[in-house]
Write a protein that binds this DNA or RNA. Structure first.
Lengths: 221, 221
DNA sequence: CAGTTACGCTACGGGTCGTAGCGTAAGGAC
DNA sequence: GTCCTTACGCTACGACCCGTAGCGTAACTG
């Protein structure tokens, strides 16, 4: 997924090795696991991939871009199951996302590239396209299903609908990331259940968990 | 705030210069503003502070620890106002936190040190004590006030109360951080208002903002 | 075949790291 | 005041990584 210039589809000359691409990204993930973000070096990745260091620089501008691409594919694993209720769907996707954050490749690098992106507009765009977009789809699809089930009302204003989706996305992703990486405590089933209840029913209801289950959200969790 | 060994309160010999401490931390923040996290170097900080590089290493183990201490004091600015309702208090503290995250010193370094902490237990503890604890107090105090006002029920089980406070803390801090740094969109008054409504009343109520304002939360916002 | 592009390899200047060594400065104990 | 102890400034150093230039070779196109 390096940023090839979208120029001529058929160029003359020797084509780029797709095998090298795959080997480099795989080596990057392996190096992240062994060394972590801060001690990962381009030279090490090149050696692991069996590739010259110059080949890396011909495809990626640097460590940041390389790691984003190496980690992005992991987010393809995220899927929104159809478990019959909004609460169950939210809880399941929360646990999926948490499992992804538990992997050492993502754990050590996600926040690092986000930090770098605060001073690099191009990198921010790459993160948005490669990682954030993959997650946000889940929120949009989850809302669709909930509206089909009648759990959520239809939103007539599309602008407001988009803003609400963005809000919900930041709340879910932010809470899971903060729990897993900042508080550094486990995102287990119990936490996911309690978070889902809070998200759907609010703080007042979340304080009396057993009493408010009969309404809409807290069904078969 | 360097980690002095809590040994003898009165030691012989030349004492450490408190002025140097202050100058170093100030220089670190300035360097973060100018260079950002990744390009900040120990040598640059030493030069700005008018101090030898070795002096830095005598007090801090490295860049990570130094930056945590330099940024931690900024979190002392956070205060929980007493605006008369839980919703107003939450919204105000969200905007305060967002303003703090907008500062270039914190914006570029907070996520970076968190990322480092995933491979450094000692650093994680330092972050917890210096930064996270300062934020979490606000949640605990906010709940107290809300309970005094009758907006939240008293929680008999202290263990459950602590877990709920942790959950709420991760949701608030995580959402704001995610909005500001990952989505990279502004945390303005409108977003804070909508987030507060979602937190207090849940997803179902948040979809009809104007209709559910008469209950408890959305008072004078 | 020639033309074009990718690759591996080596080498390089430039920068940062973290530490060692030394002489000097600034306090406390007496 | 005179020791004693610790902190400071300074220089120098090896080690490491960065990112690039140069060159010969490999692979694919027409």
């Amino acid at each position: 997924m390096p940023s090839r210039p979208p120029a001529e589809p058929t160029r003359s000359g020797r084509p780029r090795s797709a095998a090298a691409d795959a080997a480099i990204l795989e080596a990057t993930r392996a190096s992240l696991v062994d060394l972590g973000w801060s001690k990962l070096t381009m030279g090490d990745v090149a050696t692991r991939a069996g590739v010259a260091k110059t080949t890396l620089y011909r495809r990626w501008a640097g460590k940041n871009e390389l790691v984003v691409d190496a980690v992005a594919v992991l987010f393809d694993e995220l899927e929104l199951p159809n478990l019959g209720s909004l609460a169950a769907d939210v809880q399941a996707v929360v646990l999926q996302f948490a499992a992804l954050l538990e992997r050492p490749e993502t754990k050590t690098s996600l926040m690092a590239v986000v930090a770098e992106s605060t001073r690099d507009e191009a990198l921010r765009g790459r993160i948005r396209d490669s990682i954030v977009a993959r997650q946000k789809r889940l929120v949009l699809r989850g809302r669709e299903r909930a509206q089909d089930r009648g759990e959520l009302p239809a939103e007539p204003d599309p602008a407001m609908a988009a803003r609400t989706a963005d809000l919900v996305f930041d709340v879910i992703a932010g809470a899971v990331v903060h729990r897993a990486l900042v508080s550094a405590e486990p995102v287990d089933t119990d936490w996911a259940r309690r978070f889902t209840l809070l998200l759907l029913s609010g703080l007042g209801a979340a304080a009396q968990p057993a009493l408010t289950t009969g309404q809409k959200p807290g069904g078969s969790v």
